[in-house]
Amino acid sequence: MDKKLNLKLMLWRQNGAKDKGKFETYKVKDIDVSMSFLEMLDVLNETLTREGQEPVAFDHDCREGICGACGAVVNGKAHGKLKGTTLCQLHMRHFENNETIVIEPWRAKGFPVIKDLVVDRSSFDRIIAAGGYISAKTGSAPDANAIPVAKESVEQSMDAAACIGCGACVAACPNAAAMLFVGAKISHLVLLPQGKVESKTRTGNMVHQMDKEGFGNCSNEYECEAACPKSISVSNIALMNREFMFSKNPPKP
């Protein structure tokens, strides 16, 4: 329980989108194995602050794996090597004493770096704004039990809806594609009867926005699924492609 680690961190430091950025090396000592990865970074930051240096900027909020704010590439893996885990839920017991850990931001055209490990993911919001919703106005709904929905469909829909929008799928993909994120939202909605009404326009609009934001194409590497902290399945991408073929604004021939 009381095991402590000494670690060497190779951390990406970059001051703004225009800065070229570079790796800096830091040492942290006496890291308790029960700490989370972010708590380890807190220790580093408290030390840097006391020494009069600028702490490392990183996004985080809930620290329980649900808000999707945190994320970094750790030793080449988005959110680190532990499957189905966000960086805030990765604990230091998964590292070895004297290990060197390489920590970098998500790298993708669609996610420009803001500072250190913080990137701009507003492209995801714009993709949702392009159609990731059911246009039910407040006040217009029938009784919640008016439309039964098969348990199976809801469970499948929920599997996809569990996406936390962290962007690890993009960071892990060699083409920096956002198809798992977009596919998950499309599946979530289209698997429910309520979501079928607008499905024809939704998919096309979302996919076109995704292209506009500079995300790449899927070449079936499956890296996204492996990196996804919620283990969202690549089958959502297949479903999205199918939906896209039949959408109102299908792929240009």
Binding site: S140, A141, A144, P148, V154, H188, Q194
Partner: peptide
Amino acid sequence: HAIIDHCVAQGVPFAREYSGYL
């Protein structure tokens, strides 16, 4: 009441029984 109705209409995947009801 109205909250649940609205959320279902928006596509919130609340847990359901095998009957398909909430």
